[in-house]
């Protein structure tokens, strides 16, 4: 499979995502510069962490105007799998590809640590190989990961089962002490209504090798590989659409 890793000026986890895709999972990977206007045959897109365009106004606010975001949106609308990690999640929110917005962390501190995440939904391309209720230990590193959605939107997101991961204690129990940033309903990851676009604050690409302190992030990559393989074997649309772009 072919991973497209989008690089904005200020991205700094692009090489980690590229490394995970290529060296850990043995897949093809391609960097896509934010000024590119085509996706070079990518089957799955990753918007990596960092500080796109410096994040001077709001996190992710300027990146949505980058030329690559047109093809990204079209890819998402065709059902192609898109994963936003950390700043990539913030960009997907600002682009309107995912619902909600990010606020400064409760407590205002930049949090860089391992967190525990309970898998809430397994019918997304990035969580299909996980078990519902499974607890993943994956690192975060962010100052603005305090997920917020207005009451009405939040109700909709919960009703549509769009919350993919929640911050919990190590046993998978909701506990505000284990919510690192104050996110509403302890939300760590959401998907769109169609479920092919997922944004998550934690960094699965940093948790794919024992050397890095844990391998719980692997399931995110394994899920999308399994999802793409089954789509390919069924000759479903996301595959062929991705290639045609």
């Amino acid at each position: 499979m072919r991973f497209g890793v989008i690089v904005f000026p200020g991205s700094n986890c692009d090489e980690d995502a590229y490394h995970a895709a290529r060296d850990v999972f043995g897949q093809e990977a391609e960097y896509l510069w934010h000024k590119d206007t085509e996706l070079k045959g990518a089957d799955v897109l990753i918007l990596p962490g960092g500080f796109a365009h410096g994040d001077y106004l709001r996190t992710g606010a300027m990146a949505r105007f980058s030329p690559i975001m047109g093809p990204v949106r079209a890819f998402a609308e065709r059902g192609g799998p898109v994963l936003g990690i950390c700043n990539g999640f913030q960009i997907l929110l600002e682009s309107g590809l995912l619902p909600g917005a990010m606020l400064r962390n409760r407590g205002l501190k930049y949090r860089c640590e391992h967190v525990h995440l309970r898998v809430e939904q397994t019918d997304t391309p990035f969580t299909g190989k996980a078990r519902a209720g499974q607890v993943l230990r994956i690192p975060i590193g962010h100052g603005e990961g305090n997920y917020f959605a207005p009451a009405e939107m939040l109700k909709q997101i919960e009703a549509n089962r769009q919350v993919v991961l929640r911050y919990t204690d190590p046993n998978g129990v909701l506990n505000d002490d284990w919510n690192p940033n104050g996110s509403v309903n302890a939300i760590a990851a959401v998907c769109n209504e169609r479920r092919n676009v997922v944004g998550m604050m934690p960094h699965p690409e940093r948790a794919c090798e024992v050397l890095l302190g844990g391998v719980d992030g692997r399931v995110i990559f394994e899920s999308v590989l399994a999802s793409l393989r089954s789509a390919e074997s069924l000759a479903l649309q996301p595959q062929s659409a991705g290639r045609a772009s």
Binding site: L103, G107, L108, F148, A151, G182
Partner: peptide, 10 residues
């Protein structure tokens, strides 16, 4: 400004 319903940590 943040909307009145939005928590303002700063």
């Amino acid at each position: 400004t943040l909307k009145p319903s939005v928590f303002d940590p700063q």
